[in-house]
């Protein structure tokens, strides 16, 4: 159908090759971020990256290489699973990190949560009978 199927093939191959290399670089970037950033919270920003953009690029290159329409919904479902789970785990780890003081205060230019947390902690101490952790949505 196409006048020059070989050219189209070559373009698709080149695009998927670029996607693969960039996707692998995203993993490398996450590792560099893990090693270079000073505290848990900034490391988390680096860690979410290969799981969102990197996986997207790699799944797209799989789809381009297979060249059949029915793999696209499968790949999309795999990616959406990732999109739904990554923020939740990042939030849970980040929240635990903030509460257990795994963050360097001197690296923050502004902290608008601290006052709220301290107020809530004081309130929790005053009403000892109750479970102190329930002040926010879980």
């Amino acid at each position: 159908m196409n006048p020059e199927p070989n050219t189209v093939d070559a373009v698709i191959d080149a695009v998927s090759a670029v996607f693969m290399v960039v996707g692998a670089l995203m993993s490398l970037a996450a590792a560099i971020g893990l090693l270079r950033f000073p505290d848990l919270m900034s490391r988390m920003h680096a860690a979410t990256k290969p799981q969102v953009l990197g996986l997207f690029l790699l799944l797209a290159s799989v789809g381009l290489q297979l060249r059949t329409w029915w793999v696209w919904p499968v790949l999309l479902v795999a990616w959406i699973f990732q999109l739904l789970t990554v923020p939740v785990s990042a939030h849970m780890v980040g929240r635990a990190g903030y509460r257990t003081k795994h963050l360097h205060k001197e690296l923050l230019s502004k902290d608008e949560l601290e006052a709220v947390v301290q107020k809530a902690a004081k309130a929790a101490r005053e009403s000892e009978a109750d479970d102190g952790g329930n002040r926010t949505a879980r």
Partner: peptide, 21 residues
């Protein structure tokens, strides 16, 4: 993603963050 990559390589340990409501 590119920005975080750049920050990791260029700034590394000297990065400044904030918690914003």
């Amino acid at each position: 993603s590119c920005q975080v990559f750049y920050l990791a390589v260029a700034q590394g340990p000297k990065v400044t963050n904030a918690v914003v409501a």
